[in-house]
Structure formats: C-alpha cells, structure tokens
Design a protein around this nucleic acid. Structure first.
Length: 536
DNA sequence: TGCAAGTTGTAGAT
DNA sequence: ATCTACAACTTGCA
C-alpha cells in the first residue's frame, strides 16, 4: 500500500485522453507539487437498475474502458475500476489512498448532478479538493439559460441565436501524452499497478447474453472514435461541406451518416474537437448550415442537453411543463403493441427491419428513428413515447438521456414539434430511398424472396406467391397489427383533441385560466391575402 | 395581432 | 422532379 498522496481523476463520460481539461488538471501541480495520478472508473449499479443498458452498450463501455486503460499504461499509470455506488467507493479510497484532490468532468444530467453533489460534499469532509471542468458540451447549459433571461430556449432557432450570442465554443485542449505526463504522477507502487482486482471487467461478465452478440460493428473507445472522426470528417471535406441530414438515407445498407454519436455520448470523441474540425473544413469553401449541416447536428445535441439540464422531469410526460399531456393507450393492447414493436413483429417490414437493426447493431439512422417512433406513438400504435424511449435507452449505443427524451417528445408531437398531422407512412417513406427493399431483405431474410412489388406490403402478395416463397403472411411473418390507412386518421383526431382540449403544455397546472375556446381557423374566417397569393 | 417559419409527410397531378 | 391539397399545429417577432 502506497502512502504518498494522490489525485484522483474520475472518469464517467469523457472517456478520452484528448481534450480532457479535468484530466490535465489532475496532473498539474497541487500546492507546488505533482501528485500521483489515480484514474478511476466506477461501475455504478444505478446504471442498469434505473437506466436501461443492453448488452451492445455494456460491451461498448467495456471497450471504452479498455482503450483508456491501455493508453494510460503507456504513460506510466492505469485505470482503477471499482464496483459500487460512488459514495461508498470514495468513502473508502479517499482515506486508503490519502487523496488530496479529485477532478472530473461536469455532467448536467439530473442523476449525475445529485451524485456529484454527494461526492463533492464527501470530498469536503475528507479535505479533498474538488476540481471540475465542463467539456462534454460546447456550451454550458447554465450559461445558455442565463443568456436567455433564465428561460430555456424551446426552439432550435432560438437556441442558435442565444448560443451564438455567447460566442464560439472553446478550442480543444492538448491531449494527455507521455511528454506532458510528469514522472511524479506515475504509479509509484508496482504492486498496485499490477493488482488485477482493479482491472476492467470482461465483456462476458457484464453482458446478459454474451453469446448472442454479433461482432462489434462500432467498437467503443477513443482510439476507434478518433479513427472514425478522421475517416468521416477530415478525409471527406466535400461530403462534409455538402452534408444535409434530410438528404441522407434511413435505410441504406451501410450508414449514410457518420455514426459518431456513440463516441460523442461517452465522450470518446470530444464535441469541441469535432466542432473545430468541421469549422476548419467549412471555412475552406461553400458549405451547408444548421439545422441540416454536421455542425447543425452538434447544435441539436447542445439544444437537447440544455433542455435536459434545465427542464424539470424532462424524461417524463407528467410534471414536465413543456410536454403536451396526451392520453396514450392504457388498455390491454398496450403491452401487446409495445412488444410487437420492440420485437420487430408489427407486420410492417420497414418498421420491423429497423427494429431488427437496432437490436443487432445498436444503431439506426435518425430518420429510421423518426419512422419507428412515429409508428409507436401518434402515427399508429398510440403507445406512450416514454415506453419507446425506454426501448431506445436499452438498445442504442448512443442512448443519451437528454437527446433520447427530447427526440421522443419531438417525434410524438409532445413538445418542440407541433405539426402532428405530418405522419410517416410505414410503407411509403422507406420506398423513397430504397425502392427495391434491399434493406428489408437484409434484416428480414424471411422476406428476401418476395417480389419487389410486395416487399413493403407482403400481405398483398397472392397466396400462391407466398406458398411458393415459403413465407406465409400470418404464419411465417406477422400480418400488420394495425391498418395504417385507417388508424392514423383516428389518431389524428385524438391528437387534435389532445391539442385543443385541456391546456397548452405550459399551463397544465393552471387549467382554470386556460380553458379557452378553440381558435377559429384562419382559412375559415379571414384568409390571409399573402398566403393566398403565395399558393397561386 | 397577424404572419412567417418550423431539420427530414403523403398522395396525386403535372 | 416539382407542384398542390390535405387539414392545420405553435412559436417568435414585427
């Protein structure tokens, strides 16, 4: 057991050595002296219990930790992995290790804020200095809130104008590497350096069904993340500058977007690093802009992070004052519909193919997320967005608390997006980018032999053809669980009623005042001349 | 108060 | 490929 004093860097997100200001602060001098660095990661049982983590993401996390550990070992230190609640873990090691200082990256999610407050208080009682740095987002949500007079910006455009008034996001700081790593910070005690009880767990030991995992298509870790960043951004200047999200395909065989989201979620890749690389590329020529550009995608992340950090109960309908209160299904169909959706058994090949890819790869395109989210909620099944959010939370490699809650509210027209009458067709939408149904055939091989004509609607294939192919609809592949053409119109009426009855989201606790008669439609009362002319 | 805009709808006509 | 009707929402800003 070493006696010397030490400094802990606590990894949570921010699983990288590059652009990690809190990690750099851990190797800078403390009262004129360098302290031994003890990088720590805690396997906190809160995750898994309260935040669903599927096997794909458990593996991704382990890959991240292995990458950090391997990098740290090349400079003379290592990762110490603990199991337990952070409060219990730190209570022990603050004393045992004679800790003088702890550094970590600021995290703005509600659980993290509570947890970090607890650890900060604990540190004080042990005379441990606490140093935090914000580097998970381009902007500090608290600063955005302040710049908007204490109100959360509720539209993307508003967010853009508020954040741009704050100024440019900070440039990335230099990566921790051997040359920057003082020898006094290295692990002094060989025994603890080699102690396997602190090793990163094996994927086999954290997953529930290890044998069912496909090989990692998007392996976790900073090394992989930076490789991907170079491949997708640095090496594709022309593609980057012309990038427009809505023009990318939800159902291509290989992803049509960068798939950097899992790396951003865990902080394997720094959003500031990505932002400034994009900025450099854009400065060299004509380029697309937010909301559709790649910088625009980073700004969506910022937008929802700000919402998640500043809106109470952001991941719930009830108690969330910006969320439309909608009477989602609570009947006996709820579990049946939810299970069919989750298990890729809706009978709509486009939907089922997406849900299969989600389960297997842990990633689906943003528009594919739109398609299945609309189908589950206001479009077809009328199941609460919170249920869909939980499934995404479990299965997505990039499952990010704020983004997941924000996007589900968007897609169910509960907040941010209000044109609820724009409904995705589970048949037509996919045809635009994949008329031959190649994507469906890949993910649902049972349907591979169906003629192209029927691939999006196999129930329309003549029985003879189904027999010949050896795939009977209703037996080998489910019949559609709802009739989209009929149900979406019924749901439209329910949405209309949810919008007009009761109260606007902001006034849900103030029902008395907000009982206003529905607004008269402009086109009925006084058609706008400008609008009329525009349409002619 | 009125109007324009809102990351990414569909179906049918031209 | 581009248009229009469909039926029609909220927010921000002048």
């Amino acid at each position: 057991m070493t006696k010397g004093t030490c400094c802990i860097h606590w990894f949570r997100k921010g699983l990288r050595l590059s652009d990690n200001p809190a990690l750099l602060a851990a190797v800078s001098k403390h009262n004129g002296l360098h302290l031994e660095l003890r990088p720590v990661y805690i396997m906190d049982p809160w995750y898994g219990e309260n935040f669903k983590v599927g096997d794909n993401r458990w593996r991704f996390l382990i890959e991240c930790l292995n990458d950090i550990d391997a990098q740290l070992r090349t400079i003379g230190t290592r990762l110490f992995v603990f199991h337990g609640s952070p409060g219990e873990v730190f209570k022990d090691i603050f004393k045992q290790w004679d800790v003088k200082k702890i550094t970590f990256e600021t995290d703005t999610e509600p659980y993290s804020v509570t947890r970090d407050k607890e650890i900060t208080d604990l540190a004080k009682t042990h005379n441990v200095e606490v140093l935090t740095k914000l580097s998970h987002t381009l902007f500090d949500p608290a600063e955005v809130l302040k710049a908007n007079k204490g109100v959360t910006p509720m539209t993307y455009q508003k967010f853009l104008s508020v954040s741009s008034a704050i100024g440019n996001p900070p440039k990335p700081v230099e990566a921790l590497q051997k040359a920057l790593f003082p020898q006094q910070c290295a692990i002094q005690d060989k025994a603890i350096f080699d102690d396997t009880k602190y090793n990163v767990p094996k994927v086999e030991d954290v997953t529930h069904d290890f044998d069912s995992l496909l090989p990692s298509k998007f392996p976790g870790g900073e090394t992989e993340g930076l490789k991907r960043l170079k491949l997708m951004v640095d090496d594709r200047e022309k593609w980057v500058r012309s990038f427009e999200k809505p023009k990318t395909s939800p159902n291509s065989l290989e992803p049509s977007t960068t798939v950097l989201s899992p790396y951003l979620k865990y902080g394997c890749v720094s959003c500031r690093d990505m932002y400034w690389r994009l900025h450099a590329i854009n400065s060299r020529g004509k380029h697309s802009n937010p909301p559709v550009s790649l910088v625009g995608q980073l700004m969506w992340r910022e937008f929802f992070y700000t919402c998640g950090a500043t809106i109470k109960h952001f991941n719930k309908m009830k108690g969330n004052k910006h969320c439309r209160q909608i009477p989602w299904r609570e009947d006996d169909k709820k579990e049946e519909f939810l299970a069919a959706w989750r298990d890729a058994k809706t009978g709509y090949p486009y939907i089922d193919a997406i849900m299969t890819q989600l389960k297997k790869d842990g990633w689906i395109h943003h528009l594919a997320r739109h398609s299945v989210a609309c189908f589950l909620t206001s479009g077809d099944l009328w199941v609460s967005w919170e249920e869909g959010m939980a499934v995404f939370e479990e299965l997505l490699l990039d499952a990010d608390w704020s983004l997941n809650a924000g996007n589900w509210q968007w897609l169910s027209a509960s907040a941010f997006f209000h044109q609820y009458y724009r409904v995705y067709s589970p048949i037509a939408f996919g045809k635009k980018t994949d008329p031959n149904g190649t994507y469906i055939k890949k993910w649902l091989p049972k349907l591979a032999k169906f003629p192209t004509k029927y691939i999006y609607e196999p129930w329309n294939a003549p029985l003879e053809a189904q027999k010949r192919i050896g795939c009977l609809i209703g037996k080998d592949y489910p019949r559609p669980i709802v009739k989209h053409d009929i149900i979406y119109k019924e749901n439209l009426a329910k949405m209309k009623s949810a919008y007009s009855s009761g109260s606007s989201p902001q006034k849900q606790n103030d029902v008395q005042k907000s009982q206003k008669p529905p607004k008269k439609r402009k086109s009925e009362s006084s058609p706008s001349i400008a609008k009329y002319l525009k349409k002619k």
